[in-house]
Every structure is written in structure tokens, then in C-alpha cells.
Design a protein around this nucleic acid. Structure first.
Lengths: 388, 388
DNA sequence: GTGAAAGCGCTAACAG
DNA sequence: CTGTTAGCGCTTTCAC
């Protein structure tokens, strides 16, 4: 009956249920191994080690163990060392639910994205953004719950749900659909949230933390580069749909560069087409007469630039000799086929680093003044390749 | 002092700390609104409604409320209705940490992916897989924690960590790097895990639940289609690196189809190249003499097929007239430029649906016999477009 | 049917 | 510096 006393000892303060399970098991046969018995007792078969287990072995109270694990300054180095060693040996990991219940912190960040992302022209960019985001949070020891803004079944806001269920400490919002209600909840529960990449559609962004890209600057850089390379008559083609007006800003930058170079703006050189290869391809054929009078194209997405180059070739117009082209996004389209495309690299690395560090500060440290918002428009940069 | 009695009442059984905060606040001024006071009391400013709040309003015990919310059969319809109505009015959401601590269930699935996914040739496919996976889990009311298999800093297994921290109920493994140790932990803690898409490298897959794609069948379908379209001498080009031998199986299927059509297999028609547009493009030019003697190509990735078509055109070889081509993956490459590419659609929708339903069963219901593994090789299908 | 009380594993308050 | 005790919000047992 050594096993029984072991069980009784370990489960002294545990539930009736546990005990009954044990008894049942013992009746089934005394030859079951103690590990198996332990597993049977807890319904979920968990045999996790707790701070009490450590406490017993270290001959201290569980409070002391808790303090050691949290590196409290009020514990002597000696005890700390002893306790941590045992914890290490038992491969202890904290039960995050218990800790969260007590501290109201989960160590989890909610990353909210746009539904229907699959259909995006820019999804390659966004996907890269997610993976790098995940990676950055990982190095900061934060887990992420990734969800769509709105539950497609219930149509309820996932942001609100996650707040109320207390599953996350903060949010990174990679969509522009944040609603008034979401925002109210964030305020009310004082949950930090940072807007990334997308500008909210329904909300005054000046009230939030954000890291966005400076699309105006991107358009400016692209156009200025074309001008520097000797182009005089420059077309620009934006994409529709225009999420968060990003293309609008790029066109603004285009205008700004032209003005700077004393070139009057001709609105008939500004187009907007579907963000698809075929659409771009057709565009060239349809507007070939106009295009023949131009010497530069600022394509506001790489996929357009790639199609333009291919289509122009069929008309005997060579890039970059006869026509300089700059794309946007620095996506794989820009390095798919030679000539590789000169393009604008969106500063997603910088956005991610800043946003992750900020959310860490906001969720972990009390000394941050949350009322002072961090708001940055981060500048993209030019990558010169062969198309210009 | 109405406010004070309200506070005292609500915080009767709460911490000293809470109370001190309240008192401090009251000293600051009696004009602070009670909502603000409540917010101040809890350090984290949370003013969540709990089952006790509901209980008080409904004049029942919090136990009863709990039972109602969990739709227990031992509660009368009348009480249930009353309680649920109040819960609805208060916009109650369960505190998931408290529930999890008590039930050992979190409602969260860990989705584990491969590090360095960014570099994958097939990443577009995998990205689509993730988004659809997330969507499917969402409709099943499951949240997902998305992490890399291994923490890049500590090099510790995230699978093990999530198990021990009790953050997840189960895993969907979208990588092939599961280790012996991971597996041992899964067994020991009896956590369900399903292998998706990728075949594990270090582990005997026959011991796990899995839903993979039948690459052999894909290769077979592609080749058979080419044969049916009249091709006799068919090249196949696989990609390196060969993750989980997927290309090996596709080539097997290619062989099987040829054999079925009594065509002897010529190993010099089987190639392996980098999964890149340029590599494929160059391949055509380098092997143009051989290619001229062939009438069909089974390109084991759409991106290869796209490059082949472009390169062949430069040699005056038109697709599909002079050469039939079938790609693989049904990715956006296959519909980028005409002629659109006949391709093999990977059954990711079916994989996702099955895997998500299975993980739900495995984590929610006790009646499932976990020792019987669900193991399916799901068949991809052919999408006929213009290249064949 | 319902409620009182205990317990999940942890942190925090307070007393030594 | 350390231990005792209470409490986080929920589920579960057991008594009525």
C-alpha cells in the first residue's frame, strides 16, 4: 500500500472526485504504475508540478517559491538558488491560467486582422507582416492569439470578446475596421491597442497609438527617382479598391515630386485600375498611344509594374531604355523576371519592431503614460534595381 | 455616502488593496462617478461583471448562475431564463482564466508552424492554409495561438511550453519538425495533436492523427491528363528542397500513370530544380533540344509552369498547341498570365474542415477513443484550364 | 432544483 | 527574509 499513501499524500487537499478516481483505480488492480494512477486521478490526466510540490521539496512555503520564480528582491540568494534548482529539475512551468487569474495579465497579445484577407492583392505583403510580427513577439516572450476582427457567424466583435474574456493584455490591430464600440471597450477596460499599417476607417486615428507607413513619401521617392533618371512625362497607376486611401497618398507624393521639379501636373496621366496582372496588361494595350508619349511610369504596385514591362515589350518598348518604371511593395513580383523592378520597400521591419516594443511597454510596465500616444508615420525607402 | 455603501457592498469580500484604493479615491473627492471609482479600485481598471453580480440581481446563488450559463439540465427553465436574461443585459462574458483554472480546458488550439516559413517557395499556399484554418476554427468558437515550433532565442520547444503552461487544449501541427520529446509530452499529458499537410521528419507518423495530401495521386492525375490529351513523351520537373518528400510522391504518381499507359519510364525525363521562376526559365533554354522532342510537361509547381510557358514562347513553342503543360498547387501563378495553367488543386479545404472537426471532438468530448487514430491521405483534384 | 463550501494554482497583504 | 492567509472567478461536490 505504498502507492496508496503516496496518492493520499499528494492528493490530501484535492477534490473528492480525484480521490474517488484513485480508489476506483486501486480496486481495479494494485499493479498499475503510480504514474498511471496519477494520470487517472486527474480527469485531464495532467500531472503538472505546482509550486506546492516545489515548496515541499525545498522545505519552504509555496509563497517563497512564488517569490523566487518571480525573482522577488525580498528573498535571499541562497533560498532562491535552492528553489530555482528544484524548479529546473522538475521542469516546472507556471500554470498560466492560475497566474492570469491572480494577476490579470495573460502574456498574450491579440493580433486582429481583416476578414477576406485572402482576396487582397497585397496579401503577400500582409502575410510577411504577420510572420515577422509573430517572430518579433516570440522573442519578447509574448504569445499571440490571431483572429479576424469580426466573428463571421455571430458577427460579434472579437476584440470585445477577447477583452471581456480576459484572454489578452493588448492588441495589435492590422485592419481598419475598428469600430466605435471596440474603441469604447478598449478605453473602458484600459487595454492598450496599436494600429499597424492600416488606418482605421471609422475612427479618429489621432486618439490612438499607431505605426503606419508614409505612403506620400513613397510616392514622392518613386517619382523623384524617375525624374532623376531623366523622365519628364510620368504616368502613375494606382489600384482600386483603395484601402485606407493608401494609393491616394502615393499619388499625392507623385504630385509633390513633380511640383518640386517644376513640372505641371496633368491629371490625365493619373489612372486607377484593378490590382491584377491582366488588368495591367490590358491597360498598356488600351492606352498605348498615350504611353508612347511618356518616358516613365510609377506603378503603385509591383504586380502592375511586372505586367507593364511584359506588355511594353510586345510593343517594342524596352525597360529601362525606352521607359523607366518604378513599382511599389518590394514583393516577389519585383524579382520574378528580369529586368528586376526598382521599387519602394515598405518599412514593415521598423513598424513591427516599434509596435512590439511599444505594446510590451504598454502591457508590462506601469510607468508608461498611456495618455501620450505614440504616433509614427514611418518612411519607406527606394530599392534601385533594373527597371529604371 | 450612497457611493460608499455601494462600493463596500460590492467589495465586501475583496482584497484589502481594493478597499484601500477605494478609500483613497473617496478622500480625493466625493464627486468622482461610481464607475470611475470602480475602475480605480481594481488596479487593472477592470470592471468585469462576474457570476456573483448576476447571482445577486437574480436572487440566486452563483452556483446556479454557473449552471445556467453552462446549460445544466438540473436547473428549471424558469430560473435559466431569468438568469440568462440578466447575463445578456449585463453583457456578461466568462472569465476564461477562471474557467480554465477550474476545468483545465482553455478553448484555445495551438497552431504550430515551421520557422523560416517566409523563405518557402510554397508559402503562398501555406499562408492561404493558415487563414482558412483560422477561419474554420473561428466558426467552431476556438481561439488559436499561433507559434513557431521552436523559440528562436531559447531554442526551447513551444509545444512543450504551451502544454506545461496549460495554454492550449490541443495542437494542429503544420510543420514536420515535431520531436520525440514533443511527442512524449503530448502522450504524457494526453493532449491531442493533429499533423496537417506536412509529414513529420523525426517521428513515426503511423502513431499520430493526420490529414495529408495524396501527392502520388496528384502526380498521377496530372500525368494521366497529359496522356489523355495526346502527349506521349512527358517531362516532369520537381522542386528542391523536397520537404517531406512531397515531390518524390508526385514523381511516383507520374511513373504510375505512364506505366498504366504502357509507356516505359525514361529517368532522363525526370528533373529537379530550384523552385524559382528564373531557374525554370533557364532550365528551358538549357534543355531546349530535349524539350523539342517532348510534347508534355508535368511541372510540379505552378511557378515553374508559368516560367516554362514564357520561356517556350521565346523558342516558338506554343502552349498548349505544341506543348501541353500541367502545374501544381492551383496558386495565383496559374492564373497570372494567359494561357491560364491547368493544375492540381491541393485539397486544403477538406484537410482543414476535417482537422478542425477532429480537434474539436478530441478536445471537447470524452466519448472519443483517442487511441484510434484518424489518418487520411486526401486526394487533390485536377483543374483544367488552358495550358493543356 | 438549489445553495454552501471547497478547490483549481497562483500572487499579494500582512504579520512576524 | 519568510510564512500564513485570503482571494482571483469559476466549477464541482455534497447536503438539503
Amino acid at each position: 500500500m505504498k502507492v496508496l499513501s503516496f496518492i493520499l499524500d499528494r492528493y490530501k487537499n484535492r477534490s473528492y472526485d480525484s480521490f474517488m478516481h484513485t480508489c476506483a483505480r486501486l480496486l481495479l488492480g494494485p499493479h498499475t504504475s503510480s504514474t498511471n494512477l496519477l494520470r487517472t486521478i486527474h480527469k485531464e490526466s495532467t500531472i503538472s508540478v505546482t509550486i506546492k510540490d516545489i515548496a515541499k521539496l525545498a522545505n519552504v512555503s509555496h509563497t517563497t517559491v512564488s517569490r523566487c520564480l518571480n525573482d522577488s528582491p525580498m528573498i535571499s540568494d541562497k533560498t532562491k538558488e535552492k528553489v530555482l534548482k528544484i524548479a529546473e529539475e522538475l521542469q516546472y512551468e507556471v500554470n498560466s491560467n492560475a497566474r492570469s487569474l491572480s494577476t490579470k495579465k495573460t502574456g498574450i497579445i491579440g493580433v486582429i486582422y481583416q476578414q477576406g484577407l485572402e482576396d487582397f492583392g497585397s496579401s503577400a505583403y500582409i502575410n510577411a507582416l504577420f510572420l515577422e510580427l509573430r517572430h518579433a513577439l516570440e522573442t519578447l516572450q509574448l504569445d499571440t492569439i490571431l483572429v479576424e476582427a469580426i466573428n463571421p457567424d455571430t458577427l460579434a466583435s472579437n476584440t470585445v470578446r477577447l477583452i471581456k474574456q480576459q484572454k489578452v493584455d493588448g492588441f495589435l490591430l492590422v485592419h481598419q475596421q475598428i469600430t466605435e464600440e471596440d474603441n469604447r471597450m478598449l478605453q473602458e477596460y484600459d487595454i492598450p491597442a496599436i494600429q499597424i499599417h492600416f488606418k482605421p476607417e471609422y475612427l479618429d486615428i489621432t486618439t490612438m497609438d499607431y505605426y503606419l507607413t508614409d505612403n506620400d513619401h513613397g510616392g514622392y521617392l518613386a517619382t523623384k527617382h524617375l525624374l532623376e533618371r531623366g523622365a519628364h512625362k510620368i504616368l502613375t497607376i494606382a489600384c482600386s479598391p483603395n484601402i485606407g486611401e493608401e494609393y491616394g497618398y502615393r499619388t499625392e507624393g507623385y504630385r509633390r515630386a513633380l511640383t518640386e521639379y517644376d513640372i505641371s501636373i496633368d491629371d490625365s496621366l493619373i489612372f486607377e485600375i484593378e490590382c491584377e496582372y491582366i488588368a495591367a496588361y490590358d491597360f498598356i494595350h488600351e492606352h498605348i498611344e498615350l504611353i508612347k508619349t511618356c518616358d516613365g511610369i510609377f506603378a503603385q504596385a509591383d504586380i502592375l509594374a511586372a505586367a507593364f514591362i511584359a506588355a511594353l515589350k510586345e510593343h517594342g518598348i524596352n525597360v529601362p531604355q525606352d521607359m523607366k518604371i518604378v513599382g511599389y511593395d518590394d514583393s516577389f513580383y519585383s524579382i520574378l523576371v528580369p529586368p528586376f523592378i526598382t521599387t519602394i520597400h515598405q518599412p514593415r521591419e521598423e513598424i513591427i519592431t516599434k509596435a512590439c516594443n511599444r505594446i510590451l511597454d504598454l502591457t508590462r510596465s506601469d510607468s508608461v503614460d498611456k495618455s501620450i500616444k505614440e504616433q509614427e508615420l514611418i518612411k519607406p525607402y527606394l530599392i534601385i534595381r533594373e527597371s529604371s
